[in-house]
């Protein structure tokens, strides 16, 4: 196990290197520079700006300079926000987005797994259709839609929850629900499918035949294996939650990193694009690794073996 993890971390280095390098050059190919504005700027001013941010150097020099600094943890100054460094902005934005992502995942798992498991117990009956239909609404309602809708209902009509911001726990309910709901639908579908697969297998029947209660069968045996597809999905889902938090952060006026990530691309804030991209690739590598490790844990036969031994 440890060897496996170390190997995966070693493999992450070339991934990061390729991502950083590709991004570094791609952003420079994209038309429009960080200092282009609607009003014409004199050649002298443009020159001064480029000199200030090292952009007057040949591209390969810029690249090696950047890599040298990045390895030491210095992601450079933001081009859009003159007084800020990328490292500093990441430090303030990341914890917020991370918190949002975690709550969203909790919502997604809570709603998704519940709906999926309930539905799988009695396929093709009302007990299947109702929770599945409910959870699927999450997909039809993308965050741009669900966010404002939730705010209208809970924030403006009932006045139960604040319409924007990220301070108290009341502030955190609607945004995390908004961000999580799309994933809830996926999880519901995947867990229903996985559960059906497992519940139809012989070892479950064996377990039932041995007189285990239905609850024990579902919770002790079926769920671990049945949630396999969900577990493969969680890795990319968490990464997606974090990098896809832009809409939710914008709708709820939250000071997270998702906004920087998207706005930096439109602003051609080269260093900020690179910084956030590197950050997200680290997280993708990490969460995919985590989900692979969990896949081992969830292997149904492994579980069956141990429980048989216990009896």
């Amino acid at each position: 196990m440890l060897k496996f993890i170390i190997k995966r971390f070693a493999a992450a280095i070339p991934v990061l290197l390729v991502v950083t390098t590709l991004t570094f050059f791609l952003v420079r190919i994209a038309p429009g520079g960080p200092f282009d504005t609607e009003k014409a700027v004199s050649a002298e001013v443009m020159q001064a700006l480029k000199r200030r941010y090292n952009l007057d150097q040949p591209v390969y020099v810029q690249y090696f300079d950047y890599m040298k600094n990045a390895i030491q943890g210095d992601l450079g100054p933001s081009f859009k926000y003159p007084g800020r460094t990328v490292t500093e902005m990441v430090k303030t934005g990341l914890p917020v987005t991370f918190e949002l992502g975690v709550y969203a995942m909790i919502w997604a798992l809570l709603i998704g797994v519940t709906a999926g498991v309930v539905a799988s117990l009695r396929p093709n009956t009302a007990q299947d259709y109702v929770p599945m239909t409910m959870s699927m609404i999450g997909i039809c309602l993308p965050s741009v839609l669900l966010g404002p809708l939730l705010v209208l209902v809970f924030g403006l009509w009932f006045e139960w929850l604040p319409v924007s911001g990220w301070d108290s726990w009341q502030h955190k309910i609607l945004p995390s629900l908004t961000l999580g709901s799309g994933y809830a639908a996926y999880i519901a579908r995947l867990s229903r499918g996985g559960m059906l697969e497992i519940l139809s297998q012989d070892f479950i029947r064996t377990a039932r035949a041995k007189g285990l209660s239905n609850t024990a069968v579902v919770f002790k045996h079926a769920m671990r294996g049945g949630l396999g597809p969900v577990i493969s999905f969680i890795g990319p889902a968490i990464a997606g939650l974090l990098s896809g938090s832009f809409v939710t952060e914008t709708v709820f006026q939250i000071q997270g990193i998702g906004r920087f990530y998207v706005q930096a691309a439109f602003n051609r804030d080269y260093t900020m694009i690179l910084g956030t991209t590197v950050l997200f690739s680290v997280m993708i590598v990490f969460f995919n690794l985590l989900s692979d490790i969990m896949a081992v844990w969830a292997n149904p036969r492994l579980k069956f073996e141990t429980s048989k031994g216990a009896r």
């Binding site: 498991v117 309930v118 117990l121 809970f154 009932f158 006045e159 929850l161 009341q170 209660s213 609850t215």
Partner: peptide, 26 residues
């Protein structure tokens, strides 16, 4: 069926949370 009890409990939990929102307003 008894299987239902646990999922039902968590649904009940959800409803309860929703009601809690109401309590802390005003």
């Amino acid at each position: 069926m008894s299987v239902l009890s646990a999922p039902r409990a968590s649904i009940a939990g959800l409803v309860l949370t929703t009601l809690l929102f109401a309590a802390c307003s005003g």
